[in-house]
């Protein structure tokens, strides 16, 4: 018997976790849908509204959408990750979890699949569907309406941008691709590490830690570079590449720590 990974056992673990976690997860998707729909309903652009923002493709932008997408997405992913191993903080539940005949690696991979991959996919899917339906509705509402495009100083037919347009408008956004995995990994570690109040404790610890790291990085950069160098556009891109690589590496490191903490968890 393979004591590290067995696909059948992993399948059983997913099934078991779904029976335990599935109902709550589906409920959280309903709450998510209600929250996103509420944001959209409160922000329907009124016809004849003159202060529209336009993007380079001459599409009117929905200013609330990107902040909503990022903020709700952050909260959804981190809450899902933070609750996943929270049972380990309660003795009776922890015994049941740890005594389940599956390896720590299988339990850990199951956590990654649920909290990162399935959560991210379901979030994107729900947001996309709501956005598509909403766009369909407001594009009909604004059909054949014209408004002044202040970028081109011309009257243009109003057609609203999609979420994809918003996300790809700034090409540097692609460097932030690993951030959902990064945030989710932090809160997953918090759910193993802390026994109670996982979310708030993780948020406080992570904020304090990263504030300290960023402060040190700024001080070090200032000390090294002051008066010697003026960064151009290409160098700024390089900084974004470093940010991307660092977020990927740190995510893997946090996952490795989570795996070790899970292995060492005692009741």
């Amino acid at each position: 018997m393979n004591n590290t990974f067995n696909i059948n056992r992993f399948g059983l673990l997913l099934k078991r976790k779904w029976l335990d976690f599935g109902k709550i997860y589906l409920m959280s998707l309903v709450v998510l849908t209600v929250v996103i729909v509420s944001f959209y309903l409160f922000n329907i652009p009124i016809v004849k509204q003159s202060n529209l923002r336009w993007n380079d493709n001459e599409h009117a932008q929905l200013g609330f959408r990107l902040p909503t997408f990022l903020m709700v997405g952050f909260l959804f992913l981190t809450i899902e990750a933070s609750t996943y191993f929270s049972a380990l903080g309660q003795k009776p539940k922890a015994i049941m979890e740890l005594m389940t005949p599956a390896s720590t690696t299988e339990k850990f991979l199951c956590a990654i699949l649920f909290t990162t991959i399935i959560s991210l996919i379901s979030y994107l899917f729900i947001f996309y569907i709501i956005d598509a339906l909403f766009l369909n509705y407001i594009n009909e509402l604004w059909e054949n309406q014209k408004a002044m495009n202040y970028n081109t100083n011309k009257l243009s037919v109003v057609s609203f941008s999609t979420l994809f347009d918003d996300l790809t408008e700034d090409r540097r956004n692609k460097f932030l691709f690993a951030f959902p995995f990064f945030f989710s990994s932090i809160f997953l570690l918090g759910s193993v590490y802390f026994n109670r109040f996982h979310y708030i404790k993780t948020a406080l610890t992570a904020t304090a830690f990263f504030a300290f790291v960023i402060f040190l990085a700024f001080k070090a950069a200032k000390w090294l570079m002051e008066g010697k160098y003026n960064a151009g556009a290409q160098e700024k891109d390089f900084v974004f590449v470093i940010l991307f690589v660092a977020s990927v590496i740190v995510t893997f490191i946090i996952w490795a720590i989570t795996h070790i903490r899970l292995k060492e968890k005692e009741v």
Partner: peptide
């Protein structure tokens, strides 16, 4: 301490405080 599945499936542990879903 290694919590290997081969051992875990051979242990029936009935704790004093337990949880059932």
């Amino acid at each position: 301490a290694k919590r290997q599945p081969a051992l875990l499936e051979q242990i029936c542990f009935i704790p004093e405080e337990f949880y059932l879903p």
